[in-house]
């Protein structure tokens, strides 16, 4: 039982750090760069992704035995498109306020590479519960990535956070432009690689005296 729990935790944390979709796998860069001009956009996009990712992952994990491996990709696209359309319609009909904020983001989700990638790499080979955890981890990893990029860009580009004036001036207008997203992502990747190296060095040092 203890081992089972540990693996579940690992699955969950995998998406947040080890295989963070933005900083480690470098997938779905287009939305990550285009949308994150401010923190709020980043959060909304991340929340929408978590939701669709969990729904689609669980569905594929449930139906995996019935999907012919040769046509799995079209079926993944169909699943995603169905979820996205249904969520879009329901939000626009019953939650017009939320739709005003989220509507644009939801439509973009169909083309997210890393959601399809998770369906193929993980959901196809696992049962529902680990898949759910994986989707949750991946979604949260994406969310915090978007929040970091969005936060830095909003703070440095327009001097605000969530629309509230923090700095009172605009340090670097450049950070509002899409190209700056790449700089921040590159910088974060460097931090990830550096921490990984330090961590590994520490581990190997510990091993030698033992």
């Amino acid at each position: 039982m203890a081992i089972q729990q540990k693996t579940n935790k690992e699955i969950f944390l995998n998406g947040i750090f080890n295989e963070n979709p933005i900083f480690r796998l470098a997938l779905s860069m287009c939305p990550a760069v285009a949308i994150t001009t401010n923190l709020l956009n980043g959060i909304l996009m991340g929340v929408s992704v978590i939701f669709v990712q969990i729904c689609a992952n669980s569905t594929i994990a449930l139906l995996k035995d019935y999907i012919h491996p040769r046509v799995r990709l079209p079926i993944y696209s169909l699943t995603l498109a169905t979820y996205v359309t249904v969520i879009d319609l329901i939000l626009s009909a019953y939650f017009p306020v939320a739709y005003g904020a989220l509507g644009l983001f939801i439509k973009l989700i169909v083309v997210f590479t890393f959601i399809t990638m998770r369906l193929d790499v993980f959901a196809r080979k696992n049962t529902v519960f680990p898949t759910f955890l994986d989707a949750m981890g991946m979604g949260l990893g994406f969310l915090w990535g978007m929040m970091v990029i969005g936060g830095v860009r909003e703070l440095l580009g327009s001097g605000t956070l969530l629309g509230y004036d923090i700095l009172g001036f605009k340090p670097m207008l450049f950070f509002v432009l899409p190209a700056s997203g790449f700089f921040i992502i590159g910088f974060m990747m460097a931090i990830f690689n550096y921490t990984e190296r330090i961590y590994k060095e520490k581990q190997s040092k510990r091993r030698i005296p033992a």
Partner: peptide, 27 residues
């Protein structure tokens, strides 16, 4: 393969269609 794809498409279409019918008026 053909059958599998057909069934998936029809199911997806049905789900989307039913949602559309229910949501079009409030929308």
């Amino acid at each position: 393969i053909v059958l599998g794809l057909c069934v998936t498409c029809i199911t997806a279409a049905c789900i989307m269609g039913v949602t559309f019918i229910f949501t079009s008026d409030p929308k």
